[in-house]
Design a protein around this nucleic acid. Structure first.
Length: 709
DNA sequence: GTGCATTCCTTTTTT
DNA sequence: AGGAATGCAC
């Protein structure tokens, strides 16, 4: 098959043909980025510049990888062997399965999902006798995650720790890591950190992969974190054929460690880099692009650029002011039903929101009005209780060090094994130097508890079956033998749905049926832990609902952007930090540029939030859009005027004002530490005594959430 | 050891 | 408002 580059515009062709040396492709929203990447890979393969396994293509989501695979197959024919393609995390799993033993990782390691990770933090805190009530384990985990993304190891964290909270983290982090080790488990961040460590410290392994990957491509480079940055640049050292694609305006993952400077500094890292700018947009009308530009160009931290399109004109952006969130949802749904009547395909319609919590009201409205919908994200597949249970069973059988998974299912379904029996078993295991699972499997008389004995017999039987059953049979065997299905067969709709979910899991597992026993189990567990979302199949057309983050990379004819309110979007949590405000602005840019033809922005004068009513002002992002691009419905008055906090300089002077306000002896209230007394102020730091609970703290005036009382 | 009621805590975004 | 975690009665 002949690859036809005539399908591409001159810049796109340039990007495809520039195979050798470092290349940066600055690809604006809707500029055909995926097309360029797929053609580029196809081009390299077709020109026989490299074998498929010598190409590494990193994408941001599994979905993006799947789509790219499909499109390459379409270009070159189904028979083509595909390159290494996937997310950073999935590629790291692949590498660690092969070579992880160099960094002390057993081959059968478990991958803990976020809730397992949080449980592990809790356990670490319990071991340290830290109160889970006073210190939020989630926040602790957040800090550990950040550290790992910066490749800061447990032992080194203390050197960076600054302030009360980080000292706590410094004590928890090593214990957390130790527990993961005990269970032969890793968290998501470990996948990156261990792979980086592996490549940094083990020359043989490093050179193996450096020589293997002749061509490396990284999508969404603006959203890479430090660990990912180290990884790709290390891998690219041998051939230097590294091609990074991204758009600094679409960097929206700083909260999980993404560093926008990675893309901004590409030229510094590779002074000989070829830079290709894709600025022609094939997606949206000029009006939509103008609106998006009006919002994002207020950011200071960006490279100057402007998208253009041949689709001049277009409809104005409809802004609807609703009385409350219920009316907002109803307006969206009825407008979509009007569109449907006029022949619009529901697959071309999306409702986007800032937070997952907003989906509920919209979902209700869809049900009430009978509009077909699907939610992307929300409750993830692996977050469902029944799925977690089944996966825990599989992990126990796969990784006999994984006592955390054992604890999850040892009494599910109920088999009269309470917390006390578990603690006893744990103690015995510790004495014999085995994991609880291994002890149970050993067949020794481990407990006077009849219930435990019975469970041990069950476990041994399941363990034996791993060798002879393929993954589909194995799951079926587990749900029957353990009584899990029986527990769910009580006729309630809820449990019916659970059974359906497990069947769905089995159909996912069918992909690995042919790999045979053990291998299939291994492949299945590795992949399913990193699976980001459930794909809900809805018969016929349906509207798609999701967060703006989840919508990145997608496009729709009609986009409804709900909750355009100060406090929601931009979210109130970012008001204290101008860099985060810039990220919200980029998020708004991403949201607006999802629309091809029509964009609707909604806000409600009154909204139920946290159980209480709030009256939010219209989002500043609406106000940023020039009036001649908007058309209003409902009782719109005007957008919030928040310029004072929008600019870093002004905001700083506000902080300085506050500094002048405080003097020794003043009583202040801190969001976290409570009430305290100001002891003194030096430069931009303030020293406050918070009493016996937290002692004396030095806080940055600029950042501390302080209030004078 | 299990089941129920009450409290309390949450919500930013995700691999 | 809703879900998880805790505390209390069987």
């Amino acid at each position: 098959m002949e690859l036809n580059l005539k399908d591409l515009n001159p810049e796109q062709q340039e990007a495809v043909k520039a195979t050798e040396g470092p290349v940066l492709i600055l690809a604006g929203a809707g500029s055909g980025k995926t097309k360029v990447l797929t053609y580029r890979i196809a081009h390299i393969l077709e020109q026989k510049l490299a074998a498929p396994e010598e190409i590494l293509a990193v994408t941001f989501t599994n979905k993006a990888a799947a789509e790219m695979k499909q499109r390459i197959a379409k270009l070159l024919g189904d028979s083509v062997t595909l390159p290494w393609m996937g997310t950073f995390h999935s590629i790291c799993v692949k590498i660690l399965k092969r070579d992880g033993h160099h960094v002390g990782l057993g081959a059968n390691f478990s991958i803990y999902d976020p809730s397992d990770q949080q449980d592990t933090v809790k356990e670490a805190m319990e071991r340290l006798k830290l109160s889970v009530k006073e210190i939020n384990p989630r926040a602790v985990h957040g800090h550990i995650s950040t550290a790992k993304n910066e490749l800061v190891k447990p032992a080194d964290y203390a050197n960076f720790a600054n302030g009360y909270f980080q000292e706590i983290v410094a004590s928890v982090y090593p214990v957390y890591q130790e527990i993961l080790r005990e269970n032969n488990a890793v968290d998501f961040d470990d996948l990156l950190m261990y792979t980086a460590e592996l490549l940094q410290n083990h020359a043989q392994v490093r050179e193996k992969y450096q020589r293997l990957f002749k061509y490396i491509m990284v999508d969404e480079y603006q959203d890479t974190n430090n660990a990912q940055y180290v990884l790709v640049n290390l891998l690219a050292k041998e051939y230097r054929n590294i091609c990074c694609v991204g758009d600094d305006d679409q960097s929206i993952y700083a909260f999980r460690g993404a560093n926008i400077r990675n893309i901004l500094n590409f030229n510094r890292d590779y002074p000989d880099a070829k830079v290709v700018k894709l600025e022609q947009n094939y997606r949206s009308t000029q009006k939509i692009l103008d609106a998006a530009h009006a919002v994002v160009s207020k950011n200071k931290n960006r490279t100057a650029k402007k998208l253009w399109t041949q689709k001049a004109g277009g409809d104005a952006i409809t802004v609807f002011t609703a009385e409350n969130e219920r009316q907002e949802a109803e307006w969206v749904v009825s407008r979509i039903q009007q569109l449907e009547k006029s022949g619009v395909d529901l697959e071309e319609v999306a409702i986007l929101y800032r937070t997952n919590a907003q989906s509920r009201g919209l979902e209700e409205a869809c049900v009430r009005f009978g509009l077909a919908y699907r939610i992307v994200g929300g409750v993830r597949f692996y977050e469902r209780k029944e799925i977690k249970d089944i996966l825990a069973y599989l992990r126990v059988l796969y990784n006999p060090a994984d006592d955390a998974s054992l604890k999850r299912i040892i009494n599910v379904p109920k088999r009269a094994i309470g917390p006390k029996a578990v603690v006893d078993l744990q103690a015995k295991a510790k004495l014999s130097g085995l994991s609880m699972i291994k002890l149970l499997l050993s067949g020794e008389d481990v407990s006077e508890s009849k219930a435990i004995e019975k469970f041990a017999i069950l476990l041994r039987e399941l363990n034996a079956s791993v060798q002879r059953l393929n993954i589909v049979e194995l799951i079926g065997h587990i749900v029957e033998q353990t009584g899990y299905f029986e527990m769910l067969r009580d006729g309630t709709a809820e449990n019916e749905a659970r059974i359906e979910n497990i069947k769905e899991l089995i159909s996912v597992a069918a992909k690995y049926e042919e790999a045979g026993p053990v291998t299939g189990l291994s492949m299945f567990l590795d992949e399913v832990s990193l699976l980001e979302e459930e794909v809900q199949n809805v018969e016929g057309g349906a509207v798609t609902m999701m967060t703006i983050h989840a919508a990145k990379g997608l496009e729709f004819e009609h986009v409804f952007l709900v909750g355009m309110e100060e406090g929601l979007f931009p979210h109130s949590r970012v008001f204290t930090d101008p860099t985060e405000l810039e990220e919200e602005r980029r998020l708004a840019y991403v949201a607006i540029t999802r629309a091809k033809h029509n964009l609707y922005m909604l806000h409600a004068d009154s909204r139920l939030y946290f159980g209480s009513r709030q009256n939010n002002l219209v989002s500043r992002f609406v106000g940023d859009i020039p009036e001649n691009l908007r058309s209003h419905e409902g009782g719109y008055t005007k957008a919030a005027e928040w310029e004072a906090v929008d600019s870093f300089d002004d905001w700083k002077s506000a902080a300085e004002d506050r500094a002048v306000d405080l003097s020794p002896g003043d009583k202040v209230k801190h969001n976290y530490f409570g009430v305290g007394t100001v002891l003194g102020i030096k430069d931009d730091m303030v020293k406050i005594n918070f009493g016996s609970a937290y002692g004396t703290k030095e806080l940055a005036l600029e950042f501390a959430p302080l209030e004078k009382i």
